[in-house]
């Protein structure tokens, strides 16, 4: 095989050639820094505020964004069952497309003074009260073409609201 890599195209050799030619601009131009800053991922969002303050902030943000929530039970003040209209306008309602997304927001304590707000997708409903099919026929297991983008979009809006308010 005569397949090869062209030596003069290797960045170090190209730069040496350009320097040799005394190109002015070449002195100023630095190579792209390709060190990828590793993205640090973590579940949900962190908070060091007092737990009840965190819950208050979340309810205020949900209210500002027009979401609804079930009245929390006495024994579990740290879980919010949310229902949120996700209407994209263009989709015609006649097709009975579920437009109410359900979400569960839960506060966890990681260690003293370190809390985590977890967001979980919890199925769809149609605004005329019918349950989305996710509860009837196909269980979580079978439902395998699920688009996460509406869920990601709504959580983004909620996180922005919390970030802006705080």
């Amino acid at each position: 095989s005569t397949i090869a890599i062209l030596p003069s195209s290797l960045p170090q050799i190209h730069r040496a050639n350009m320097m040799q030619q005394g190109s002015r601009a070449a002195m100023k131009i630095t190579p792209l820094n390709n060190k990828k800053s590793k993205t640090k991922w973590h579940f949900g969002i962190r908070s060091r505020s007092y737990p009840l303050d965190v819950m208050g902030e979340i309810y205020i943000a949900l209210k500002n964004l027009g979401a609804e929530w079930a009245k929390p039970s006495e024994e579990d003040l740290w879980t919010i069952k949310v229902r949120w209209r996700y209407d994209t306008g263009s989709l015609d309602q006649q097709r009975k497309i579920p437009d109410l997304m359900r979400m569960v927001i839960q506060l966890f304590q990681i260690e003293p003074n370190n809390y985590l707000v977890d967001f979980k997708f919890d199925g769809w409903e149609t605004s005329n009260g019918e349950e989305g099919s996710s509860n009837s026929s196909s269980t979580e297991e079978e439902m395998s073409t699920f688009s996460a983008y509406p869920f990601l979009h709504l959580t983004t809006r909620l996180i922005m609201e919390l970030a802006v308010n705080s």
Binding site: I5, Q12, M18, I29, T30, P31, L32, N34
Partner: peptide, 15 residues
């Protein structure tokens, strides 16, 4: 030639 000075060192070269 000057614009190519921007290439990062991870560029594998021209085949």
């Amino acid at each position: 030639g000057e614009a190519l000075m921007r290439r990062g060192d991870d560029f594998e070269g021209v085949y």
